[in-house]
Amino acid sequence: MKKQDGFPWYGWIAGLAAVLLTMLLCVCSGSAQLAAGETLSVIARAIGGLPVEDGLYKSIILSIRLPRVLSAALSGAALALCGGAMQGLLRNPLADGSTLGVSSGGALGAALAIVLGISIPGLPLAASTGMAMLFSFGSLVMILSLAYAMDRSLATSTIILIGVIFSMLASSLLSLLITFSGEKLRSITFWTMGSLSGRNYTHVLILLGGLAVFGTVLVSQGREMNAFAVGEENARHVGVPVRRVKLRVMIAASALIGMCVSVGGSIGFVGLIVPHMVRLVTGPNHRRMLPVTMFAGAVFLMLTDLLARTVLSPIELPIGVVTSMIGAVVFVSIFYHSRKGGKSAC
């Protein structure tokens, strides 16, 4: 046990198994009532590479539910991972794309790309995704520099306050953009609450690529994040190249958040709820915590999305409504305990 402070191979297997099981559950349920047997056979044939008979089942399962469930799993994994990483880096259990205003910044970038009609021929969504990534990173840099300038210790409340203010600014700019763009951007709900409705395999590929590249970067920085989570000065003293690690994590996290925002809008608080829950089980060691967070995030968002699309069937709830409700409770609980416990959480 002492030797194994990393994440063991069987952990990866177990995590993957949990994700796949949840995925199966989510693909089998939805507002359309499909027979379980038939559904399973379609899935089995699709996995086995056998031809699937055209029809309602194939359409609903393979064209609608599967890409949506995959998008939910990948977004959930990515958002949770980014939240966990930023909480470690900033030594702040309340840090998350939504609380820091990174998602709002990303949404603004994506919306701007759409309004200005920026596009890269042959690569659908590339321009808006790219802009979302760029704006997310810009927002994070801006928020952190401002926070540093005001309070070098990066106290929990300072940074959250700045994040909230920045978030409001970005959201109002977004509203302004929507007002001026007529119906082109349409729904503000999409950008502020998020939606995974109608996501297709292109979206899945974007998320998969993002998670493969930036997710790997984040998971590989577990040791460094442990040092940061204990204290940035201490990290420097034990030999962590703090500036380089910080930049690396910030780029990876904001790029990943930007990708998630461009695919599913700002789905709030996932990065706050999941790492918090996971930390209660695994402890704060990021080398265990980050991989578990990734799997738990995937499971969490798949189930949340399932709830959002079935509870009022055929009406869909915006997924952000569900995550934000849970998130608000968790936020208050962390804040309460960190205040009450004095030194305990931050």
Binding site: S59, S197, P314, E316
Partner: peptide, 15 residues
């Protein structure tokens, strides 16, 4: 069965 305007799922359209 939906009152007024409502967000609906793609699969319910297919169904």
């Amino acid at each position: 069965d939906v009152q007024g305007w409502g967000a609906v799922s793609a699969e319910s359209v297919l169904e």
